[in-house]
Nucleic acid binder design. Structure first.
Lengths: 243, 243
DNA sequence: TACACTTGTCTAGATCAATAGACATTTGAG
DNA sequence: CTCAAATGTCTATTGATCTAGACAAGTGTA
């Protein structure tokens, strides 16, 4: 089967091929052998030189997705993307469940600032009203999965940063402010290339793709309590919507 | 503000910059002036040569997103991404609503084949059971937005292809088989670079990103009636999940 | 008109991406 | 052991990408 790659697109052939092989691995296309086809075969399928395939495989090996052994071939080390569920009851740590052994959310920083534009309208507050911003990075089994900036109305949740720092959980920090339950009301998703900051924070092999979500959580009366912008490493994660 | 771009990543600088400007436009960052900053300013912000910025703007002009006028500057022509809503009642044509004036879904082809792997498990049928495949491309105001392959159990919906060809609607084709209502039960989302076929069918400036969704629709008893794989042009669409 | 500012075009050189071919090294099977 | 098959390394060459600088041409304002 001939697999098409495009030239002169601003995306190097080796990166296109790396993306395709990564997808094929997570689709289980190579499960029978447990390894990626030989370089010469791949070069034939994609219609490129063997060295170009080697660059692609080097990138995948760098990500820890495959392991290359001289004389044997290229073995698949890790298959699945982590599936991040999005539902009315989305809670970050619960959703990943058994997919990763150990989950960590690290607070990068926090600030109090005035809300404008999308932040104010999403939270349903007046422009200029104070909000608490939390910037976090979350990882599973040591690999960073997402970076987020979350915003909370300062009038209602004044101690958000301190509570989160102590409790390491948004749900518990809400509870400390007397909010026992909340639901996800909307999530918007776009895909784009990662920028420099995201590359370093997510430890991505640069040029990678991120899934950016803008989400709103509200209390049971429908009043927004959190507006959040998250970037997920697209080649490690998929989003699963349950409706 | 210094905006970071990464070198030697397999993604050309002009493409990274085009992605960032496209995002800034759709975020409304340039709404005050209604135009993109001058090339020299952008070159300074991104830390690259003016010619590199010109390549990025040329790509955006090619997409019809901006219009460049010598002496004046680079005007923004089109801002918003089309927002595709995903909910329990997801219907393709209804959701786009007022965002596009004219919606078209064209049948590329259909086939009857045996279901295996993800198709069979998603539809809850035995491996080898027959399914009807419909391949379609959907566009809004003449611009292609998505390509899809959808699968239906042939035992229950034997005339799916013919009905769809006549009625131009999955919902109506279901109704013709006696199914009056159905709901979306799950949607999985990944992001990746488009392959050659997708580039030509979606008329993308090559190297672009697609959002790939795998979705399951079921009847009111919970029995799956459709399994669908869709690819959305990521720089023209966002997905909006309502929960 | 004169001028500042913007995009358009051209040339030249440096760096990166991809091709081509040759050969070494390791592994597993016979 | 021998050999086929796979990955590793090297050199050389071509084409794409990016930088650098200079100047042309169009737009709007004073």
């Amino acid at each position: 089967m001939r697999k098409v790659v495009e030239r002169q697109t601003g995306v190097a052939l080796w990166r296109q091929i790396a993306d395709r092989i990564r997808l094929a691995i997570s689709n289980g296309d190579y499960d029978a052998a447990g390894m990626v086809p030989p370089e010469t075969v791949l070069a034939g399928e994609f219609g490129v030189n063997r060295h170009t395939v080697r660059s692609a495989l080097a990138a995948l090996a760098d990500e820890g997705l495959v392991r290359r052994v001289q004389g044997r071939g290229t073995m698949i080390e890790r298959k699945e993307r982590v599936s991040y569920p999005i539902s009315r009851r989305t809670r970050f740590s619960q959703g990943l469940g058994r997919q990763v052994k150990e989950i960590g959310t690290r607070l990068l920083g926090h600030a109090e600032l005035k809300a404008f534009g999308e932040i104010a309208t999403s939270l349903g507050i007046a422009p200029g009203d104070p909000v608490i911003e939390l910037r976090t990075v979350s990882s599973g089994d040591g690999r960073p999965l997402s970076v987020s900036s979350s915003y909370y109305p300062a009038a209602r949740f004044p101690r958000m940063a301190q509570e989160f720092e102590q409790l390491h959980s948004v749900t518990k920090a809400f509870a400390a402010h007397g909010l026992d339950d909340y639901v996800r009301v909307s999530t918007e998703i776009v895909a784009r290339h990662a920028d420099g900051d995201e590359l370093s924070m997510l430890k991505l092999s640069a040029g990678a793709i991120v899934l950016e979500t803008h989400s709103i959580n509200a209390d049971l009366d429908g009043k927004p309590v959190e507006y959040s912008r998250s970037c997920f490493a697209a080649d490690r994660m998929k989003l699963k919507i349950e409706t």
